[in-house]
């Protein structure tokens, strides 16, 4: 994939976030704490996988060379995925999943908002649609942070732990990689550093309502995902997600 032009790489980066988080959330299907939550995360997972498909279809057109949405999702190695580290973090307990989701949804909301004014028509079209759905996701995860933070003593302690643990991964959102830089120069993607202000403000506001500790915008960021350097977890996700496609490469259903 190193031969990809900057635009295709940027679209793959967007697609990989949606796919990996969608795959992660699908792990809750049938295991949600109560039925409504089970249905909710499965819905969010479906939205994200649907979004990933739209990005991959576009990336496949840009890359050409007989690539398809399926070949991009199922036949790339971990090093060729450009998702943020946060989306590959394990589901953990419900609080861990909601902390991850809250950070991501809030970022995703502001990112999509900027993509709706991208110079690239296709990205603009995809983002316009996804932004509406993401508004629901962001509302859902923020409500959970508030409910758990301002809940019982135990829920407060546990969500605080999840929020603090996931935070260094969230800061990777604002690291400018070569791909981000080029996407911004082409006017197809936002300057990620600029998203940090809005994101920090919204996250702080919700954490304060939730009676949780405020975040430190200058804390240490865990980085690498966007450049293809992933955690061990990533390989395990791919192994599970890609195994059928790789075992039966021409299977149809």
């Amino acid at each position: 994939m190193d031969t990809c032009d900057p635009k295709s790489k940027y679209v793959l980066h967007l697609a990989d976030d949606a796919l990996i988080l969608g795959q992660r959330l699908s792990g809750w299907c049938g295991h949600g704490p109560i039925l409504e939550q089970d249905i909710a995360v499965s819905n969010i997972s479906l939205d994200l996988i649907g979004l990933a498909r739209q990005y991959y279809q576009y990336a496949a057109e840009l890359i050409g060379n007989e690539s398809t949405e399926d070949s991009l999702a199922y036949f790339r190695e971990s090093r060729e995925f450009y998702n943020h580290l946060i989306v590959e973090q394990p589901n953990g307990d419900w609080g861990d999943t909601m902390a991850r989701q809250f950070y991501f949804d809030t970022f995703h909301f502001f990112q999509l908002q900027k993509l709706t004014i991208s110079e690239d028509l296709r990205l603009r079209e995809i983002a316009t649609k996804a932004l509406k759905e993401t508004t629901y996701h962001a509302q859902f995860s923020a409500e959970w942070i508030i409910r758990l933070g301002d809940g019982t003593q135990e829920s407060h302690q546990r969500i605080q732990k999840s929020i603090s643990h996931q935070y260094p991964f969230a800061l990777e959102f604002f690291e400018t990689t070569q791909v981000d830089k080029q996407a911004h120069e082409l006017n197809i993607g936002p300057d990620v550093v600029e998203l940090k202000g809005e994101w920090t403000e919204k996250v702080s506001e919700i954490l304060s309502i939730a009676t949780l500790d405020d975040i430190d915008p200058n804390a240490f960021a865990k980085k690498g995902g966007k450049r293809g350097i992933h955690s061990e977890e990533h390989g395990l996700i791919l192994a599970e997600m890609q195994s059928v496609a790789r075992s039966y490469p021409n299977a149809k259903w």
Binding site: E36, Q37, I39, A40, L46, Y136, F140
Partner: peptide
């Protein structure tokens, strides 16, 4: 509103 997400992608409960 019981849940923002319902039985299908288009519905809330």
């Amino acid at each position: 509103c019981v849940s923002l997400f319902g039985s299908t992608a288009c519905k809330s409960l």
